[in-house]
Design a protein around this nucleic acid. Structure first.
Lengths: 244, 244
DNA sequence: CTGAAAGGACGGATTCCCACACCTTTTCGA
DNA sequence: TCGAAAAGGTGTGGGAATCCGTCCTTTCAG
C-alpha cells in the first residue's frame, strides 16, 4: 500500500504533517480586507462599516480590528476621517500593487492548478444551477468590460467581479469565499504583467461563450470553455516565468 | 452596481465581513490529526513520529502538540506507551464515530456543493495530467474495494484513499489538502448512514468508469462520471435529511 | 547495568487578544 | 446656536495561548 522504499515518497501524509499556520486574527483581517480592496470588491472610495460595528461582524475585538485598519492605512489602502459623518474609506486611487515575491513566483503553477480546479468545478455547478436573472446580471458586466480593454486594472476589477459572480450563481457562500481567495492569489501573479487589448478582448469572448453555455445548462461546454480560458493565462505566465 | 435597496442583499461582501475564525494551533492540530485518523490516512496501529520530531514538523511547540495528543487520546483515537521503543499510536480498533451535530447536518448541502466542485475540478485536472503508473496504482485500490462491499467502514477507508489518490494525480499538494478536508467533511455526514452493498457496488463501478476516462485523458467524461457518482450520495442524503 | 529514546510534567516569558473606559473631532438637528 | 450623536483615537489591565527550556519517569537495547 505504501510507496516503494527509496522512492521519493510524496505521500498524502506529507500534507497531514505539514506545518500548521496558525494565522492570527490580526493577520487574517489584514488579508481579508486587503484582498477585497485589491480585487476591487471594495471599490475605491467605499466607506467601511464603523469600527464598532465591523469588529462585531468580524467577531474580533475593536483593538485587534484597529491594528488591521492601521496596517492597511500605512500601506495606503485605507484612510480614515474623524468626527460624525467620518469613517474609514478605501483609498482612491489605490496604491500601486507590490510586485510578487519570490515565493509567490515559485509557486505559480500550484496557484494556477488550484484556480483551474476551483473555476472549472464552479463553472460546472453554476451551469447546473444558474437562474436566468442572475445570468443576465453577469452579462451586463461583460458589456461593461469591453470599454476597459486598454486599462488592465479596470479590466481586471470587472473580470474579478465576473468570476466571483459565477461562484455566486451556485448560491454557496463557501464557494464564493474559495473563489475570492483564488482570485486574490492570481492577482498577486498577474497584476504586473502586460496584457495587450487583443488578449483581453479574446478573453472576454470566452467569457461570453462560457455564460452562453451556463445559460443553456451545458455543463460540458462550460467546463471546456473555462479550461481554455484559464489556459490562456497559464501560457502567458509560462512564457514569462520558465520553470523546469 | 450594488443590489437594489430593500432586496435581500446576499452580496459577495458578506463573505468579506464574515467572522474570522482564528483557529488556534491546538485546534488545528487536533483537527488535522483527527481527520487523518478518521479517514484512515493514518491507519489503526500506525506509529506517529516522536513528539520531539513531530512538533518540529508541525512548526509548533511541544507543549502545544501534547495538548492535541492528549485530547485525541481522551477521545480514544490515540494511545501512548512510554519508554524506549514506545511512542504514540493510532488506536486499533478506532472508537465509534460521533453522530453528526445539528450544525453539520444543517449545512449538508453546502458540504456537498463544495465536494462537487472540488472533486469535479480535480477529476478534470487529473484526466489532463494522469500518468499511467499512478493510474494503475489506483486501479488496484478498486479491486481491493470489491471485498469490502458489506463492511462500510472498510469500504469508506479505501474510498477515501481513492479520492485522495485522484488529487495526488494532479501532483499538487494544495489540492491534496483540499480533497482531504472535503473528505473529512463528508465523512462526518455519511459515516452513520446505512449503505447497502448494491449501492457500494454501483459506486465502485463508477470509480472504474472514472478511472478509465482519466486514463484516456477524456476530461469531459471524467467530469460527467464524477458528477453522477457524487449525485448518488446527494440523493441518499436528500432522502434522509429533508430541507426546504 | 547503563545509556538512549521515548512520553510526561512544570514554570516563566511572550505575544495576542479581549473588554472596557475615556478622549477628540466633526456634524447634524432641535 | 449649541448640545447630542457618531465617528475615529488612545490607554490599561487581564486572560489565554503559545513558546522555550528543563527536568522526571519509564522502558528497552546493547
Amino acid at each position: 500500500m505504501g510507496p516503494a522504499p527509496g522512492a521519493e515518497m510524496t505521500s498524502s501524509l506529507d500534507a497531514v504533517f505539514a506545518p500548521v499556520q496558525s494565522q492570527t486574527a490580526f493577520e487574517e483581517t489584514v488579508e481579508r480586507l486587503g484582498t477585497a480592496i485589491k480585487l476591487g470588491l471594495l471599490a475605491p472610495g467605499t466607506r467601511l462599516p464603523a469600527e464598532r460595528e465591523l469588529c462585531a461582524r468580524l467577531g474580533i475585538a475593536r483593538s485587534t480590528l484597529r491594528q488591521a485598519l492601521v496596517a492597511l492605512g500605512q500601506s495606503g489602502h485605507l484612510h480614515a476621517t474623524r468626527g460624525r459623518g467620518g469613517g474609514t474609506f478605501v483609498a482612491d486611487p489605490l496604491p500601486p500593487a507590490q510586485p510578487p515575491s519570490a515565493e509567490v513566483l515559485a509557486g505559480w503553477r500550484d496557484v494556477c492548478d488550484s484556480r483551474m480546479t476551483v473555476e472549472v468545478g464552479i463553472a460546472v455547478l453554476a451551469a447546473e444551477r444558474a437562474a436566468e436573472p442572475a445570468v443576465d446580471a453577469l452579462e451586463e458586466l461583460l458589456t461593461a468590460i469591453d470599454d476597459t480593454l486598454d486599462d488592465f486594472p479596470a479590466y481586471r476589477q470587472i473580470d474579478v467581479r465576473f468570476h466571483v459572480g459565477l461562484a455566486e450563481l451556485t448560491g454557496n457562500g463557501h464557494l464564493v469565499k474559495l473563489m475570492t481567495e483564488t482570485q486574490g492569489a492570481m492577482s498577486n501573479l498577474i497584476s504586473h504583467i502586460a496584457h495587450p487589448p487583443e488578449v483581453l478582448d479574446s478573453a472576454n469572448y470566452q467569457h461570453r461563450r462560457l455564460l452562453a453555455a451556463i445559460r443553456l445548462h451545458d455543463e460540458a461546454t462550460a467546463a471546456r470553455v473555462m479550461t481554455e480560458h484559464l489556459r490562456g493565462t497559464e501560457y502567458i505566465l509560462a512564457a514569462l516565468l520558465p520553470e523546469p
